[in-house]
Write a protein that binds this DNA or RNA. Structure first.
Lengths: 219, 219
DNA sequence: TGGGTTAGATAACAGTGTCATGTATAACGC
DNA sequence: GCGTTATACATGACACTGTTATCTAACCCA
């Protein structure tokens, strides 16, 4: 009765290697053997620390949501709640474009949305709250008329996720279209859709666009 | 100098088998050996008719877009262009829910959006025109103010695709949310986003919902 | 310091896409 | 109709995948 403990350093290394492989080669590049080789171990090490190969990806997925939540809260909160909403929208897009493979794992149809257990889905739902906070401020300022906050969040998420995944799939590029223009239009239409004043919306969008330019240029 | 011709019937059978396997077991169920077994041939038959395994899926993808285009044009054109727009939106969603695996292949990140050549992407862009036609009618009726038709189409597509793919991923179900409510809200926000009159929008949405109920019950 | 448990290595199995080889068949010139 | 010949398709292999049975060596605790 004296068990040998699994080395948490090994587990950490595996997850880090998986994240790196994912970012560099996409989901197809993350294999058990490559993972093991990356940390100088055998494939069995993977199965000591994880039940299935997918569970390694789930761990990367978790870390992705942590970073994603940070990105969504990064844009400063100002006196213009609609500008803050739009700035968050741009931040959403920038995260996805900077981490395309990670975004696909997080929101794509690969495997996780299904295979991830309820626990993981609840974690991802937390990120959703970041959206709700900024929508709530738009409502409370009187500029937006929002019946149900949660439903409004689903509308916003649908739009930004839809445009983002279409852009990641390369459709806009292949058709010679300008994704920044249509994304701005998505944000504009959403704000107007919630009853905002068109002129005010345009002002807010301009502020948000300036903020995004600043943030994006910060390397 | 007397070549033996490949049997077009074999090719057709392969594509049909791939479509069936896809619908029944998802993309993972479509393997070369299963495909060959389904038509009583060897895996080499696949490589006689297609360069790569993926090209079989591309063929299913093509047929999917043909059917999808039909589904988008199915809702009747009436005197209310916004109701017609919304009815098309519901038809979009119904197609995806009825053919989930096919929809994922068509619009998902699996492989095709990237691997499919320019020719295939142009074909999918044709389907996009179905959306533009109905948006154009909303604009011409004076109810919508649309700067650029193509950009407006991208906004609409982003929203409906975003909500649809989130629903297919099972997020709404796992959170106990009502996807029909938020989808209706997506359509409403979109119409209002283009400057439509809120009261008129509500009327049009009701009409479209009735039409959808009819169409859906036609099994 | 010993005893017991388990981390991790090695090697295998079943599955995948793909291809080299061989054969039989279909299309042409006569 | 009959050879001739290019090729459709079958057979079997190769490299890869995730996963697991087996073994050894290292660790933890008494």
């Amino acid at each position: 009765m004296s068990p040998r403990q699994p080395d948490p350093h090994v587990r950490l290394q595996l997850v880090e290697a998986a994240a790196r492989l994912l970012a560099e080669q996409g989901i197809g590049g993350v294999t058990a053997r490559r993972l093991a080789a990356a940390i100088g171990a055998s494939t069995q090490a993977v199965y000591t620390h994880f039940e299935r190969m997918d569970d390694v990806i789930v761990e990367v997925w978790r870390e992705g949501f942590r970073r994603f939540g940070g990105a969504l809260d990064e844009p400063a909160v100002t006196a213009d709640p609609v500008a803050d909403f739009a700035a968050q929208g741009w931040s959403y897009r920038r995260f996805a474009l900077t981490n395309p493979h990670l975004y696909r794992v997080m929101f794509g149809d690969g495997l996780l949305a299904f295979r991830a257990g309820r626990h993981e889905q609840d974690e991802s739902a937390d990120t959703f709250l970041s959206l709700l906070v900024r929508i709530e401020r738009c409502r409370d300022s009187g500029r937006w008329h929002v019946d149900d906050l949660h439903t409004a969040g689903e509308v916003v998420w649908s739009t930004v996720h839809g445009h983002t995944s279409i852009e990641l799939a390369g459709f806009f590029a292949s058709q010679g279209r300008d994704p920044e223009r249509s994304y701005a239009e998505c944000l504009r239409a959403t704000a107007r859709g919630f009853g905002d004043d068109p002129a005010l919306v345009d002002d807010s969008l301009r502020s948000a666009w300036r903020a995004e330019q600043m943030a994006a240029s910060q390397n």
